[in-house]
Amino acid sequence: MLTKRIIACMDVRDGQVVKGVQFQQLRHAGDPAALARRYNVEGIDEVVILDITATLESRRALAQTIRAVAHEIFLPLTVGGGIGSEDDAAAAVDAGADKVSLNTAALRSPELITTLARRYGSQAVIVAIDAKRRNGGFGVFVRSGTTDAARDAVEWARQAESRGAGEILLTSMDRDGTRAGFDCELTAAVADAVNIPVIASGGAGGLDHFADVFTRGHADAALAASIFHYADTGVAELKRFLHARGIPIRI
């Protein structure tokens, strides 16, 4: 049976892992390669590197970070943050990324999804959606959550799928970094609307939150950052907990 995936995300700035709350107040959380090595030992299913500044200088640092992390783990590795062109995606793939995650650029030019899906296959193209509750629905924000894209998250997820996206990485901006639990309603709304896997993100704080997002939220995978970085919740402990709850997990 296909297992639910537990994904560790590293928000990277200038080669270091940082983590904020609701996209603000960044603090340092360590060296990406050292963290990746620990996650691998603990049984993480997948790793995501998000370059959260994506300035020209940090882009060069990013390629080094990707290479360093890819050297540590033989697991699927996704890279996102500031990928705005086919060349940016190629640089990430050449450095060792298996998948690229598009956000702002996908909304600006959805044809980039199709271009990359043709070149690398849909399985290599993730569309990241930063969503926020609004008027009873879910709005989409871009530019690291600073700009309202005036789109509906469910509608955009459907369009991304039709353009060739292989997965959706769905972040609740309301819950990001709060440890209040995933937004299961948001996750289920998107997961039920598309036929590609949905990775839930934003709000993981305890073991129960993961169980909730896999059952009530219909998520295919769940992503977290800070709770894994600071080792509040070990990946192995989380997986044993989910397994005991009858959720299919790779132990």
Partner: peptide, 17 residues
């Protein structure tokens, strides 16, 4: 084929036995 009712999506992505 997958199975939409059981949320067995295609593509088949992830760890399986």
């Amino acid at each position: 084929r997958g199975n939409a009712a059981e949320r067995l999506k295609i593509p088949h992505v992830g760890w399986n036995a």
